[in-house]
């Protein structure tokens, strides 16, 4: 059967692509659109490394079919920095050494941004539970949580 022709918006750009039914949004992002910042750690929704925003909702792109995103709004890690300016979360992750190997980092950043957009002043508890779907094996989460709290302070100041 013919591939699906999908028109959508990715990081504000209008995009067209072709995909098979069984291809996930993650497959499309990585293999078709060459946006490899979203990572595949498990392909089962258990690690969060493929986190993206879909119409303003945080989702695992490995659990969305490519053909579902027609006419919708996809935001990935590649769209997080604006021009030369890093997002405050990106900046704080660097300053707090909140990454070691870095494979989980895009997913954590996308998920953290979604949190701070809804909850500008989260507690440590809220951060930890919101990010429970993002696995990190290197850091023990300590510096990630600190970076998110610090970024929240920055963002509240505007």
């Amino acid at each position: 059967m013919a591939k699906h022709h999908i028109e959508t918006t990715v990081n504000g750009d209008e995009i067209e692509f072709l995909c098979e039914t069984e291809e996930t949004l993650l497959d499309v992002l990585r293999d078709t659109l060459h946006l490899t910042g979203s990572k595949e750690g498990c392909a089962s929704g258990d690690c969060g490394a493929c986190s993206v925003m879909l119409d303003g909702r945080l989702v695992c792109s490995c659990l969305v079919l490519g053909c579902e995103v027609g006419g919708r709004r996809v935001e990935t890690i590649e769209g997080m920095a604006k021009g030369e300016k890093l997002h405050p979360l990106q900046q704080r992750f660097l300053e707090h050494a909140a990454l070691q190997c870095g494979i989980c980092t895009p997913g954590f950043l996308v998920a953290s941004k979604a949190l701070l957009e809804r909850t500008p002043d989260p507690t440590e508890h809220e951060i930890r539970y919101w990010l429970a779907g993002n696995l990190c094996r290197c850091t023990g989460y300590d510096k990630i949580v600190s970076a998110v709290m610090d970024a929240a302070v920055t963002m509240r100041k505007g």
Partner: peptide
């Protein structure tokens, strides 16, 4: 049910 990400779906 699942993570924040899974809750979105």
């Amino acid at each position: 049910i699942g993570s924040t990400q899974v809750q979105g779906r």
